[in-house]
Design a protein around this nucleic acid. Sequence first.
DNA 1: AGCTGTAAGTTACATATGTTACGCCGATGT
DNA 2: ACATCGGCGTAACATATGTAACTTACAGCT
Lengths: 310, 310
Amino acid sequence: MLNQQLMVKASWFYHVEGLTQAQIADRMLLTRRRVNELLAAALQQGIVRVSFNSPLADSVEMEAELCRRHGLTDVVIVPTPNDKAQMPLVLGRAAAMFLDQMVHAGKVQSLGVGWGATLRETAHQLTPTNSADIKVHSMMGGLTRGSEVNTFEIVRRFAKRLNAECHYLAAPIYADDPASRDTIIAQSVFAALLRDAVDVNVCLLSVGDVTQESLQVRYGLPTRTEISELVGAGAVGDLLGRYLDQDGCEIDHPLNRQVISPELEEYRNIPCRIIASGGFNKRQIIRACLANDLVDVLVTDSETASWLLM
Amino acid sequence: MLNQQLMVKASWFYHVEGLTQAQIADRMLLTRRRVNELLAAALQQGIVRVSFNSPLADSVEMEAELCRRHGLTDVVIVPTPNDKAQMPLVLGRAAAMFLDQMVHAGKVQSLGVGWGATLRETAHQLTPTNSADIKVHSMMGGLTRGSEVNTFEIVRRFAKRLNAECHYLAAPIYADDPASRDTIIAQSVFAALLRDAVDVNVCLLSVGDVTQESLQVRYGLPTRTEISELVGAGAVGDLLGRYLDQDGCEIDHPLNRQVISPELEEYRNIPCRIIASGGFNKRQIIRACLANDLVDVLVTDSETASWLLM
DNA sequence: AGCTGTAAGTTACATATGTTACGCCGATGT
DNA sequence: ACATCGGCGTAACATATGTAACTTACAGCT
């Protein structure tokens, strides 16, 4: 009746038969403390182990690991959909559920939102609330060309769902040239808008990639800008219209000096920054955001998560 | 973020990251109660399960099952030794450890013992104690022929180990014939001895088989008794010198009317009846004892246990 | 023999856990 | 629209758990 034997036996009584430690102590003629030690030791030595019997377990493990590695508050991983057109849908649903919880728990006073198919879906999936005095701010200017996923459209949807005040960022995303941008943001009305945009306690954004599939590329960029130029300058994608390199730093390109959106350093101060993005094209830019600590909560798909952990 | 998802996640935090339920509730924006439910549900639905990673686990499982099926207080299973000559040694050691614990816990006031190689080994392995006023009683009469495992020898060893009073049952195991037996046990001195033998609160016996290897056959039986007669009468082995059929009932044979040992119905009243026996030959008689509720604690080997559970 | 260090038991206590009671809210059905 | 009902959150509680402080017992050493 060695120690090993005792550990297994105590563990059996505890985990299988559901006895309490005191009962086990009685039954095995030991002290309760001894039983306590045996159980802890059995767990620690792997004599008994808890195993997860669920396909979701991998996700949870990856979530924990991503949190740990990048100091994130939370990670939500959804199964990668077979049809990649479903990606915004599933990510949107997951982001909506996450946001729902935060709203419900009263953690959201003011919400900054970006744009894109994922956010559009998020707004759609949000459960309506009328509990709190939430303010919703657009964090990016609006497109000058039409699109089914305009920033104005997005922020309005969020506000409607949340019965919230709706604040538009009434400006184009990009000025025609750096000098023009500087002139514009020097105007107090725009300066105030940009200030308000980052004066939120929660924000929900997605990131853009640098392929032809990017909405930004299709609808957002000034007409004469070529995506290849940006890639050539090291861009792996954009956050808030600002193109970032693989370290998450803004690339040196005129476009980044034309953008009308909060400075990254301002953005950094937002207490809870949620980024919802996934899929092959977004891998690089997501990693860049993680690398430069531009995220607190990541909502992504399992394949991307797995790649991020490689 | 379905219920399944939540269960896995909560379980992960709890079992892998070691958070408390309250911490998980905070982190997942749920109530502590909800987390509690999730964890219970995850366990119950097998989403997480505790698995035993030890060769001893099988034994423990069988112990539990034997307890359950036969209403035993305890079962100790030792690995079946490759060399069957080792059987008394390992069983003896296990029985000794078990008895040690009982003695140490003050559960043993008076101990009745039988005889055999296993008990001899048990006495040998017992750790010496001088704590309590224990009395040791032999529960069977002594052999009339010499043997290295005499009942007197056994009880003396036990008493010495335990620093206990030693009470012999000064009589032969078998009288020459039933009438003689009746005459003997009518004598008050023998009646008292038999009464004392069962007036113990713990007893430790082993059982005998009906093969030529049996000690009883070799040394105990009256010279003119043939084992084949007993087998013919349905015997599968003996307890306290009384031959039992497969249901644990005494067979109808003169030998059972010659035996000088406590009646089974008296024996039944002993609060804690430990039987230590194992090996192929003893299977049937062990099962018989279990069937007729003649055991509270069984010490046996894993192959026998496995067979008993078939 | 007496001393001393270690290991184990005992007690006590701060947390953690599982469960109950109760009340709010939203859904359902008339 | 109103009443009923079930689910969920809150709070409270009785247990169970994990630890620390203290005591006792034992074994080895001088």
